[in-house]
Amino acid sequence: MSLTETDIARHYGKRGLYERIITGLAELGKSEESLTPEDLKAVDEFHIGGIEATRDLMAQIDIGPQSRVLDIGSGIGGPARHMAHSHGAAVTGLDLTPEYVETARRLTTLVGLSPEFVVGSALDMPFDDRNFDVATLIHVGMNLPDKPKLFSEVARILRPGGTFAVYDVMQLGGAHPEFPVPWASSADTSFLDAPETYLAAADKVGLTLVAQRERVAFARDFFDRLSASLQGASPPPVGLGLLMGEDAQLKIRNMVKSIGAGDIAPVEMIFRLPG
């Protein structure tokens, strides 16, 4: 693991995260013995729009029981569990942060699902060539300094005709958000890029763009609701605050300000590898 990757893993790593999630769920009257995937959605979909965004992305791709899926930057496993539970797909999650992978494994076992989770880098994936039908990247590219290498790895592990679904925060204007933001505490681990950078990297390895859209209004509505939920001295016992830490509201404010200024936005891109 490179020094940059170590710093990124440290930014996300939260010791005791599983225990805090279980404690928060208990405060809501949810016991470990009866948890469902839906009970975890407030905390395990760590991206703008949460489960709504995941469903919107999945609606644009062909995914079902026949699909072998790689979720790149899988976090604590929310999208991977959703794809397994709602679509019946065979899912593997890859993430740089050991605490996230361990939490993802334990939560997945707890709710009786089958996705597997592996510690590793999106820029050097520990998988054989042509191993997956679908790859997803949900709010991960902001931590990846080498987009051409990412797309080269995706093209390598996808089978002919495979799909790469991206939902990332991208740079639209000239100014970077103030730090901290949800994905980085300083410039050392923030690698925002313009949509054109993604498109150029895809074109270089033969991935064809089939759909693209910016989700600015969607993002503003989501952050309005999230900020309201974090107001006051008692934030919800289970929510993204568990992942973002004590400065969650500051991270959200900085991001919202930058979205409002037109400098950044969440963007969906769907690519296909020729069959």
Rank of each mutant, 00 (worst) to 15 (best):
L209T: 05
T136F: 05
G50V: 12
E246G: 04
L273H: 13
T23F: 10
A84G: 11
R130M: 09
D129T: 14
T163Y: 13
G239E: 06
E246I: 11
T108H: 04
F271L: 12
G245I: 04
I270H: 11
H176M: 11
L192D: 00
G262A: 01
R15H: 10
G78K: 14
S258P: 09
F222K: 09
V69F: 07
D128K: 12
E38W: 15
P98I: 06
R253V: 01
T108V: 06
A104K: 09
P195I: 03
L150P: 07
R105K: 13
V154G: 03
L199C: 04
S34R: 15
A80R: 11
V166G: 08
F179I: 08
S227D: 08
V111W: 09
P274H: 13
Q249N: 06
W183Q: 00
A194F: 04
S74T: 10
G16Y: 13
P182H: 06
T136S: 13
S190Q: 07
M125A: 06
I252Q: 02
S2I: 07
A184S: 08
A194M: 02
I72M: 05
F179Q: 00
L242F: 02
T163S: 14
E52S: 15
L25P: 04
L17G: 02
Y12N: 01
F223K: 10
T108E: 09
P126H: 05
D193T: 13
L144F: 01
I252Y: 09
Q212N: 07
T4C: 08
A175S: 13
D44P: 11
I252N: 01
E116N: 02
V216H: 12
A104V: 01
N254K: 09
R213K: 10
T36E: 13
N143C: 11
S258E: 02
T36V: 13
A80N: 11
T36S: 14
T4Y: 06
R105N: 03
S2K: 13
I61A: 05
D263N: 14
R15I: 01
A265H: 02
P37I: 10
R159S: 07
Y167R: 11
K14D: 09
E178F: 06
I22N: 03
D39S: 15
Q212Y: 12
A217W: 07
D133E: 12
V169T: 15
T54V: 12
E19D: 15
F223R: 10
M142W: 00
L57Y: 02
E268P: 03
D193N: 08
N254T: 08
A228N: 04
A228Y: 02
